[in-house]
Simulated scan of single mutants.
Amino acid sequence: MTEPEGSEPAQDLSDQDIFAVLDSDHRALLELADRAATTGGADELAVHCEQLVMLAVRHFVAEEQYLFPLMRQHLPDGDRSVHRLSDAHRHLESELRRLEDVERSPQAVGPILADVRARLVDHVESLSQAFASLRGEIDPAEAQRLGDDVLGVEQLAPTRPRLDHSDSPALNKLVSLVEGYVDRIRDAYTHRGVERDER
């Protein structure tokens, strides 16, 4: 996933494993949430909120397709953990949908952003132990291959909060490809998530 505009130069993740890639996503999402919460003008606020939504949805899609199967296979309570994380994704995407629909003013956006950030912090913390456990179970070469897969799927994933979530990775991949294609066309046409001076 690409680091937000204005942050430190993005680390090349092409040779990183799945855990390093997802950790980088987590840092980028929290940074973007903080930037949106402290921004000044309405236009800048709108762009940062759009970028946050786009990056979060892509990240969730990647986790569901590649991380969740690992958790189910290798963690003793994997099914329960995945169910809990799936619910968290749904709740977060519901809040992200509110963020897209609400009037873009600090007064209206502030409480939603605060809730989104708190949920993201919970998300990161809930996965830190899972990552530590999985690193001992996954072959390093396989973990690196999965890191490449995550980077690839994030380029094709939807960028808008989804209404439906499938527990089937195969169905998830198919639906994501279709939704992602439509979202990218809409994003390009509307310049969604792009700074005004870069349009």
Rank of each mutant, 00 (worst) to 15 (best):
E93Y: 01
R98P: 08
L113T: 04
S81P: 00
P106S: 05
E93A: 09
A108H: 12
I112R: 12
H89C: 13
R117H: 12
S81A: 11
I112L: 14
M71E: 15
P106C: 05
S94L: 04
R98M: 10
D115H: 12
A88F: 02
E95Y: 04
R117T: 04
P106F: 09
R98Y: 06
I112T: 14
R84H: 14
A118G: 09
G110N: 05
E100T: 15
S105E: 14
D79M: 03
H83C: 04
D115M: 02
H89W: 08
R119V: 01
L75G: 02
D101S: 11
V102M: 00
D101M: 01
S81W: 09
G110L: 00
V116L: 01
L113K: 03
D87T: 14
A118I: 00
R90V: 14
D87H: 13
E103S: 09
D101C: 01
R72D: 14
A114E: 04
E103C: 03
E103R: 12
D77I: 03
R72S: 13
L96T: 13
P106L: 04
R97K: 11
H91P: 00
H74T: 01
E93D: 12
L75T: 13
P106W: 09
R97N: 06
D77A: 02
D115W: 05
R90I: 14
G110C: 02
V116C: 04
A88D: 06
L113A: 02
L75S: 05
R104W: 11
D79Q: 15
H91M: 00
R119P: 03
P111V: 04
H91D: 03
P106H: 07
I112P: 08
L92A: 10
D101K: 05
I112Q: 09
H89V: 11
